[in-house]
Amino acid sequence: MDANLLQLAKSIAEVFLPILYVVTAIGYGMAFFRDDAMARQWKSRLLLATTATHFAYIGLHTASEGHCMVTTPFEMMSLVAFTLIATYTVIEFKTSVKGTGFFLVTLAGAFELVSSVMLKVTTGGEMNPVLSNLGIGLHVTAAIFGFGGIAISAVYGLLYLLLFGELKRSDFGKFFKHLPSLESLERLNTAASIIGFAFLTVAIGIGVFWLPRTFANFSYLDPKLLATALVWCVYAAVLFAKYVLKLDGRRVIRLSIGGFVLAIFSLTVVNAFFSHFHKFY
């Protein structure tokens, strides 16, 4: 494809993608909160359109920039958003779990909005050649899936707590009407936690093994590494509480949401103090 044409297509996708996320989230919100018939009819089509557009955008971005979207935290945020929306698309079309779209699409949309805005501000720099290293590629990919997994786990955990509250209070509102059962939400929360934990383990493992060999000034005291290790510990505790201590669902879920909050802290606040993703890069 002609380079100018490629750039134009990428620019169009860049503009339309956040808009699509917002429209899809509004559609799901109107279906959930207002039971709007038109929103119910169109939301799934909007979801497919957004997922397809995001997929195309990743392709266009990769082709036009000449590297995968892993060079900055904001590029990675876009990939996390895609992981979330693609996962939800599979959940909506392949399982009986319905009614959770608004929450996952909104979270994915938030990631994508931040990514789109910040990429506009920060793009243009040269890519470090070290990022084409296979080990780094696997490290980053595993981290993206890991963060995607725990984000999904947190959304289903939060929905579990909201539905639990309505059931306990006998205040049978929107969550009672539209969400899947507590058991389904707990199962999704656990499955996503396990997947997130597994990928974080891989990301940290590769990081610990490969990064010291790649970066001369690698430090085990890197704040991002420490924060991610802390998130990993929280999720290890979540799974321990669930499968060994057999704590009830609500307590386990609260812990997993705590892990997600920590992960967000690691992705945003820590980054605010460093110009690079890690202290050593």
Binding site: L163, L167, F176, L179, P180, S181, L182, E183, S184
Partner: peptide, 9 residues
């Protein structure tokens, strides 16, 4: 209906 909001299957 209540049971179905608590248990999935």
């Amino acid at each position: 209906e209540l049971a179905r909001r608590i248990f999935s299957d």
